[in-house]
Design a protein around this nucleic acid. Structure first.
Length: 886
DNA sequence: AGACTCACG
DNA sequence: ACGTACGTGAGTCTG
């Protein structure tokens, strides 16, 4: 039995576009509508098994309906470019699916569909019509079922004449009368003002059609009678507009719409281009499809044993791609699996997997020597991690000439899938299975048997060898060679050294702090329960919300997705109403200290050494900053005294040594002054003034003596806002003032700092033109959403365009300082060690006799890391703990 | 797994 | 009119 599926192309594309988040592939191409369309097609093909298929599109803007009514579809918002750019992709997709598509100038998709369903009715063929538009219900018949999308896209509601009768009490033909009476705002069809669905249905149940309603206005009453009579013409016209034209001159030969399956090769190619990874994985494209599309390279994966280790040793040369595998997120604790060497000797691809036990045994000695020989050039993926994993096994890794991870990060620091599997895929290279595919995840994680393991790891080694030349070239094209070779790659080594050194924690002191906190928490908890009159989980925002806003009846003014907001901003406003609120704030503060900074930190202390070894991640932050994990040592409390005490437990690892810390003063505003070349801002720094005071004087037009702490605070917030990519709303929130006042501040700021204004304008323009912004050292960040039609997305991209060059350049500078500092320590034979970086601060441990040297050297290196048109300056201090080095 | 909250620059 | 400040990581609760 034949079955024809007809899709209302524009309608479904629209539905998909608005139902799904704005997905895009790595080159910034938006794909959500295509994706939605694809899933719908796949579902229909699988569930309905059509023998015939057609997708109809609207063509051009003017149809015969406009001749009758020039305002037809007037006032409709322009299709966003994010959607319109997807139509060619959808058409390409349909070609790959081998589904007939049709559009005809002067007609809408509706009319094409109406014509073909008429043919189906005449021939008695079954049709499933899919649309998001209820107008289509007029086409329902014994042969034609109409599927209207519900929420989302793959869920539909089916209508045949009986169901339309049940739901509306109308025949399909009367759907047109319904629209004639009530109109349709989306198509700008007027109908009769004041008549909505309810009234229209009532009238139709009584009179049957628009014409009959108009002929019987006598039986209507009052205002309604007037309106109907007055707009009789509109109703007739609206009915005509809503009537689908069923005589489009088009192919009506049934079998020209035959559907006999997709072109697997074309479709898999399409999915790859669009990066529909989940679909690629789960779909069967038929024999040959993937093989044609994806490069496959043969590989002889050797699992090395004591017997054949000589083969590998014989092949070691001055350069090789290697891969170091270890299990576990934290490289300081990961369980090493082994090391792979990939050898491409022209004739064949061979990989050698050396299990860690073999590598550490006597037989592994020549391999270890090769790894630690700086003259042997290694290419690998994730130098930093590899170096740490091997270091904890007592094996040194030196002579790295290319880290594919670091390079891929620089090429696109927002890439979310920085894995060998994802990257080979992205660059169209021979594939690597994902670790999850091979190892499983969660409780099911386990290493496969030796052959599969050595093949998987061998392919990683091969992938490194293949991707390195591609990445080298890309780096060159983007002008990021020196950033890569002279800064980021050397920094990876510096970071590994810092982390391996670790920082000593006074665990006993920390425990004592914890005991004190628990005591206080107990007291506050009891007090909170008493004030609430009931015991509950204070840590649960849900329970807390119920207590505050329902039981105690405090005013709730801010909501989250799931209920009442109980964050600090809300609680601070509620504090005057009830004593309990202040107690809860205090509880939260201490509970945070206890769980994150006492218990959390203690869990990370290595019992053997008493130290914590954080893991700085170099490929996470989109701006080029570092991030810190296991534990995060970049967010140790400082703002409030109670929390700041945590810093007392970070101490030197050798007796008689000191902790020395140096932080840049206003580095971001200095960078802004340099990049923008704003005269006023430069002047502030050249004269070594307090920049917030200076801003207050200029923005508020007062003398220095008139700048009190409040004015300075406001000016400081303005400066922060400027760095973040200013918006009136954001500043108003921060300062708790009206948006109007905030906008006034910004206006005044820009009137004074005109160079800054010009920078902000220019950088947004540059980002629109280039699609990316850069830091002083040519670090890039792509901003595809800078051209979005969605206000929020676009605004976010604009603020990012303003902020990233500033935050990113500051990151460049401190990274330079770190590399230079590490070099100086070595060169000058100093014993002092660099331990931590906190974005604008470096922390060292220093023997007493080097204190004076370091107090001079560290700020000097930091200040001169990258010469700007304003001076950079770093403040330095030292003490027996991190707390005291303030 | 995601939401919420909060610590830092 | 739209509704957010920029960049992170960790602990806890909840469905």
């Amino acid at each position: 039995m034949d079955k024809l599926i007809i899709i209302d192309g524009n309608s479904i594309a629209n539905r998909a576009f608005y139902a799904l988040p704005l997905l895009s592939n790595s080159s910034g191409l938006h794909t959500n509508a295509v994706y939605g369309f694809t899933t719908m097609l796949l579902k229909l093909i699988e569930e309905e098994k059509p023998t015939h298929f057609l997708v109809a599109f609207d063509a051009g803007k003017i149809t015969f309906r406009h001749k009758e009514y020039t305002e037809y579809k007037g006032g409709r918002a322009k299709t966003p470019t994010e959607l319109s750019e997807q139509f060619p992709l959808i058409k390409e997709l349909l070609t790959a699916f081998k589904i007939t598509q049709f559009e005809l100038s002067g007609y809408e998709a509706d009319d094409i569909i109406g014509t073909l369903t008429k043919v189906a009715d005449e021939k008695g063929k079954k049709v499933l019509l899919v649309s998001g538009d209820k107008d289509m219900l007029q086409l329902a018949s014994d042969h034609v079922t109409v599927a209207i999308t519900r929420k989302g896209i793959t869920e539909v509601e089916l209508y045949n004449p009986q169901e339309i009768k049940d739901k509306y009490g109308l025949t399909p033909a009367q759907i047109i009368d319904l629209k004639g009476l009530m109109g349709d705002t989306s198509d700008n069809i007027p109908g009769i003002p004041g008549v909505g669905e309810k009234t229209a249905l009532k009238m139709l149940h009584e009179f049957g059609s628009v014409e009959e309603v108009l002929a019987n206005t006598a039986s209507l009453k009052g205002k309604m009678k007037e309106k109907v009579e007055e707009h009789a013409k509109d109703a007739i016209m609206s009915k005509e507009l809503a009537t689908i034209f069923r005589e489009v001159p088009m192919e009506t030969e049934w079998n020209s719409y035959r559907y006999d399956g997709f072109d697997g090769q074309a479709l898999s190619g399409m999915f790859r281009k669009l990066e529909f990874k989940s679909l690629l994985e789960k779909m069967d494209f038929g024999p040959g499809a993937v093989a044609e599309d994806q490069v496959v390279e043969s590989l002889e994966a050797v699992a090395v044993t004591e017997t054949n280790v000589g083969d590998l040793v014989g092949k070691l040369s001055d350069s090789a791609a290697i891969h170091v595998e270890a299990v576990g997120e934290n490289p300081h604790q990961a369980a090493p699996v082994g090391v792979v060497w990939f050898v491409d000797d022209g004739a064949e691809n061979k990989s050698y997997y050396v299990p860690i036990s073999l590598l550490k045994s006597e037989a592994g000695e020549p391999l270890r020597t090769w790894l630690s020989d700086a003259s042997k050039k290694k290419q690998l993926f994730d130098l930093h991690r590899a170096r740490l994993v091997l270091a904890w096994q007592g094996i040194t890794l030196a002579g790295v000439d290319f880290d594919a991870l670091l390079a891929s990060y620089l090429l696109d620091p927002t890439e979310s899938n920085l894995s060998l599997s994802g990257l080979t895929y992205k660059y169209g290279l021979p594939g690597v299975k994902t670790d999850e595919e091979v190892f499983g995840k969660g409780a099911k994680f386990r290493l496969p048997e030796l052959t599969a393991l050595s093949d998987h790891l061998g392919r990683k080694g091969m992938a490194v060898a293949r991707i390195v030349p591609v990445l080298r070239e890309e780096l060159e094209k983007s002008g990021m060679q020196s950033l890569f070779y002279e800064l980021e790659q050397p920094l990876a080594g510096v970071l590994a050294e810092m982390e391996l050194q670790g920082i000593l924690v006074d665990a006993e002191g920390l425990k004592a702090l914890g005991v004190e906190l628990v005591k206080q928490l107990d007291t506050i908890m009891a007090s909170i329960y008493k004030l609430a009159g009931v015991e509950f989980n204070i840590n649960s925002p849900k329970q807390l919300g119920e207590i505050l806003f329902e039981k105690l009846g405090l005013p709730a003014w801010k909501k989250t997705k799931t209920g009442y907001s109980t964050d600090a901003e809300v609680l601070e406003r509620l504090a005057p109403y009830n004593e309990i609120v202040g107690q809860i704030l205090h509880y939260r503060q201490l509970a945070k200290l206890q769980s994150t900074y006492v218990e959390g930190l203690l869990k990370e202390v290595r019992p053997e050494t008493g130290k914590v070894h954080t893991y700085y991640r170099q490929t996470i932050a989109a701006t080029g900053r570092l991030s810190s994990q296991f534990p995060n040592l970049q967010n140790i409390p400082i703002r409030l005294e109670e929390g700041r005490k945590i810093r007392k437990v970070f101490v030197p690892s050798e007796p008689g040594w000191y902790i020395l810390a140096a932080d840049y003063s206003q580095i971001e505003l200095r960078v802004l002054a340099h990049i923008s070349q704003d005269e006023k801002l430069k002047e502030a720094f050249l004269q070594n003034m307090d920049v917030h005071t200076k801003t207050a004087m200029d923005v508020f037009g007062v003398e220095e003596s008139a700048v009190d702490s409040n004015l300075r605070r406001q000016a400081k917030a303005v400066n922060f806002g400027i760095v973040y990519g200013i918006s009136g709303y954001g500043l108003s929130q921060n300062l708790d003032i009206s948006r109007k006042d905030a906008e006034q501040f910004i206006e005044q700021y820009f009137a004074v700092f005109q160079g800054v204004r010009k920078y902000m304008d220019d950088i947004v323009k540059d980002a629109r033109r280039d699609g990316f912004v850069t830091t002083m050292l040519q670090r890039r960040r792509y901003l595809p959403e800078i051209t979005a039609s969605n206000f929020n997305l676009r605004s976010f991209a604009e603020r990012t365009a303003m902020n990233t060059p500033i935050q990113g350049t500051a990151a460049d500078i401190i990274k330079l300082a770190m590399v230079q500092m590490a070099e100086r320590l070595k060169q000058d034979g100093l014993k002092s060690r660099m331990l931590l970086q906190v974005h604008d601060e470096l922390v060292f441990e220093v023997p007493e006799h080097e204190l004076e040297t370091m107090r001079r050297l560290v700020p000097e290196v930091m200040a001169s890391a990258l010469p700007l048109d304003v001076p950079l300056s770093a403040d330095v201090d030292y003490g027996l703990t991190w707390y005291d080095a303030k």
